[in-house]
Design a protein around this nucleic acid. Structure first.
Length: 273
DNA sequence: ACTAACCTGTAA
DNA sequence: TTACAGGTTAGT
């Protein structure tokens, strides 16, 4: 579920609550949700540490502790990190509770795909999951030329290439469809055959839609909630995702819904070339 | 490059 | 009952 704007919103809404707090105790309701390191269990690593700062890389949330460790969390489709200022009986599908010096952090995940892993902070970015990620789409280094370079290395269609986290980190099914719609480029085009003008349009559309998503606190199309349990608002601004059969906002023709790269994809076959 | 697998819930 | 869901990865 959470793509870059949703994870960034979780990071922001969580940081104000938990930065500086001590993790007093770890309660596991479903142990596979967490992973320790070597012989040390997740609970042993985390207990007694203090939360220093929160970062994000692609769709990964990074919680830096003051004991040389970092927690790498990925929500996959339905994961939530929820902060409660008071003790609270865990809701259904809560797999981990971190008791803090003030309040609690609950990791809740209906589909059980999400994971939280404890790693050494020094090795964080060289862990297998993070080391393979492409550049951050909102960073300075992401230029139209850089995007073109990364896309050109893949012999896939655009939809598959933009979902590929090694090409660019943080886009998922919603924001790929939105970026392509706004750039007026077909998801089925070859990733390696864009003109410079198309690359500029795609680059700009990608950045604009991600920034707008963050601005709106993410897209709560279904399960997504921020750390306060609040919905985002960007589902009201979607122009393509979830609008199959509805009129294109440019030309009025019905938007087409079809599988591309194994994912449901909505596009306007008249506007997007 | 496509499919199954990991899971549960919801809607058709 | 079946299909499908903001993701990733390990298989063909």
């Amino acid at each position: 579920m959470p793509e870059l704007p949703e994870v960034e919103t979780i990071r922001r809404t969580l940081a104000g609550h938990i930065t500086g707090l001590e993790i007093k105790k770890v309660i596991l309701y479903w142990a596979p949700a967490v992973r320790g390191r070597g012989d040390s269990s997740f609970a042993d690593i985390v207990s007694g540490s203090r939360i220093q700062s929160l970062d994000r890389r692609g769709k990964y949330l990074l919680i830096n502790l003051d004991n040389g460790h970092t927690l790498i969390a990925h929500m996959r489709m339905t994961g939530r990190l929820l902060y409660y200022p008071e003790d609270l009986e865990p809701a259904r599908h809560t797999h981990v509770v971190l008791k803090l010096s003030q309040g609690e952090l609950h990791f809740n995940d209906t589909r059980k795909f999400g994971r939280i892993q404890a790693v050494l902070t020094a090795e964080c970015f060289s862990t297998s999951s993070l080391s393979i990620l492409g550049p951050e789409p909102l960073s300075e280094e992401m230029t139209p030329a850089r995007l073109g370079e990364r896309l050109a290395r893949k012999k896939k269609n655009l939809k598959a290439a933009l979902l590929d986290q090694t090409v660019v980190a943080g886009l998922g099914n919603i924001y790929v469809d939105e970026a392509l719609f706004r750039a007026r480029i077909s998801p089925e085009r070859s990733a390696s055959a864009l003109t410079e003008e198309e690359l500029r349009a795609l680059h700009q559309a990608m950045i604009e839609v991600l920034k707008a998503g963050i601005e709106a606190n993410g897209t709560s199309f279904r399960d997504y909630r921020d750390a306060n349990g609040e919905q985002g608002l960007f589902q009201k601004r979607l122009q393509a995702y979830g609008r199959g059969g509805e009129p294109c906002l440019n030309c009025g023709e019905p938007l087409k819904k079809k599988k591309v790269a194994g994912r449901t994809t909505v596009s306007c076959e008249k506007c997007q070339r």
